[in-house]
Amino acid sequence: MRLDASGPARLPPVAPGLRIGLYGGSFNPAHLGHRHVSLVALKRLRLDRVWWMVTPGNPLKDRGELAAIDRRVERASRIADHPRIAVTDFESRIGARYTRQTLGFLTRRHPNVRFVWIMGADSLATFHRWQGFSEIAGLMPMAIVDRPGFTLTAPAARAARALAPWRIPETEAASLPDRAPPAWVFLHGPRSTLSSTALRAKPGGPA
């Protein structure tokens, strides 16, 4: 499925040459751990912006507990609370079901923007199950931000092993947006223990 890159998508402001991190997920609900990952990426990768891309739903997860997308976007905007973090639900507007479709759409629409795909280390652990994970890696550089419990297991996961030849040293992380894909870096440092699953499990659910 090839999405039309010429139609309206309500993207956040963008200009050629900007270094923009793309952080996708269901954000069900958004929490300060998401913000922590974004601030790490902004600093370590020297990004101009990070976009939180609130997805219609993860094909690998049960949608039974998925809140309405407008509620998830509203909470994400409150949690982000940063002039360089934008929240968008454009994936639902262009009919994208998979990350590879979304990233292909953006690279066609804005070929002169230096996009970076951002993932938590927990997502890297299951990245091989994503549709077209090698295609995703070939579309734009990727930054993996460490998460508790995945510091050692994620870099040893199936997708990480397949992409090992293109991993760059963490000391060169700031150069990632300027590199041609495939290229990726694993960012260590302070880790957030917050998770959407744990927040949903609390009595009364997320605020």
Rank of each mutant, 00 (worst) to 15 (best):
F133T: 02
L152V: 12
R75K: 13
V87S: 00
G104T: 11
A80R: 03
F115W: 06
V116F: 02
G64A: 15
V54T: 10
E65F: 11
M142W: 03
A80P: 02
M142S: 13
P141A: 09
M53Y: 01
V145M: 02
S92H: 08
F127N: 11
F115G: 01
H82E: 10
G138H: 08
M119D: 00
R71N: 10
R100N: 06
P56N: 07
R84G: 08
S77T: 15
R108Y: 00
G57K: 10
G138S: 12
I136R: 04
S134Y: 02
F127T: 08
A154G: 07
F133N: 04
R109G: 03
V54N: 07
R114C: 05
P111R: 10
A157Q: 01
F90P: 04
V113N: 11
Q131S: 09
M53S: 05
F115Q: 01
G120M: 08
S92L: 10
I69D: 05
H128K: 04
I118S: 05
T126E: 14
P155M: 01
R93M: 11
E65I: 08
H128V: 04
G104Y: 02
G104C: 05
T126K: 10
V145Q: 00
D89T: 03
N58Y: 04
R93Y: 04
A86C: 12
A143I: 02
P155G: 04
I85R: 08
A86D: 15
R147H: 06
D70A: 13
R75D: 03
I144Q: 04
A96L: 07
R109E: 05
A137F: 10
A157W: 01
A156H: 11
P141Q: 04
D62F: 06
I118A: 06
S134E: 15
I94S: 04
F127A: 14
T102W: 01
H110Y: 15
D62M: 06
I144E: 03
A156S: 14
D81M: 08
R114P: 02
W117I: 02
M53V: 15
S92K: 13
I85G: 06
P141I: 07
P111W: 11
S123W: 00
T55P: 10
Q131N: 11
T99P: 01
Y98E: 12
R109T: 04
D146T: 13
R109F: 05
D146S: 15
E65N: 13
V54C: 06
F127W: 14
I79N: 08
R63Y: 00
I69N: 01
V113I: 13
T153E: 14
W117M: 09
G57D: 05
V145D: 00
P141G: 07
R71S: 13
T126C: 08
G132M: 03
R84V: 07
N112H: 14
V116P: 01
Q101T: 10
G57E: 05
L139R: 11
